[in-house]
Amino acid sequence: MATPPIIEFRDVARVYGTGAAEVRALDGVSLSVEPGEFVAVMGPSGSGKSTAMNVMGCLDRPTSGHYLFNGIEVGALTQDQRALLRRHYLGFIFQGYNLLARTTALQNVELPLIYKGLGRAEREAAALAALDKVGLAHRAHHDPSELSGGQQQRVAIARALATGPQVVLADEPTGNLDTKRSVEIMDLLQALNRDDGLTIVMVTHEEDMAAYARRLIWMVDGNVQSDRPTKGAG
């Protein structure tokens, strides 16, 4: 295939501090994610999975090694150029939802579209479509405080989807939810991957949730310890 991987780490290291206080959060990680994959990243605390997500999301840059996003060397980009990558190609889902308070679901979903430069009507249509996709079109005009945790996370997913990203990065998306809501969220993500071909990389602590992915990367001490298909894959 001529298509390059969406995400390609070549010997990526991310080092905080210097000398004795040096912490090697990522210590020479090499991996790649192809279009259409659904990858779960697991590992104990401090194994570097969040740092890996930050680098993938272009929020952070590797200290050494190469991160190629769609074949583009991210380490060579300025902060503003990386912001453009996030704006056009990446979607984020966080453990704590990170919705704007006192702002309706619709406005929250519209937020990335404002930065994309869409007009008001276009933006509203796209945001409503995204909310419809997560089954919350009827709650479009509610504030996050009027929504349950599961609903808030679905609004966050709609926000990540609204711009039509190539990759959605989810950082413990079910971390704050009970099992029933978690299953709903994972079903939704799985459907988006299966039906729309959305590429998803998800960090999680829970085996059950990781099982929804098709590939599991296990990290220990800033390195990939294992990388294999999940049982549910195929």
Binding site: G57, L59, Q79, D80, A83, L84, R86, R87, H88, F92, N98, L99, L100, L111, P112, Y115, K116, R159, T163
Partner: peptide
């Protein structure tokens, strides 16, 4: 601060 973080994550540039 968190709002600013969210805006940056969804693609706001420093200038914006």
């Amino acid at each position: 601060t968190r709002e600013i973080g969210i805006r940056m994550a969804v693609g706001a540039q420093a200038g914006q």
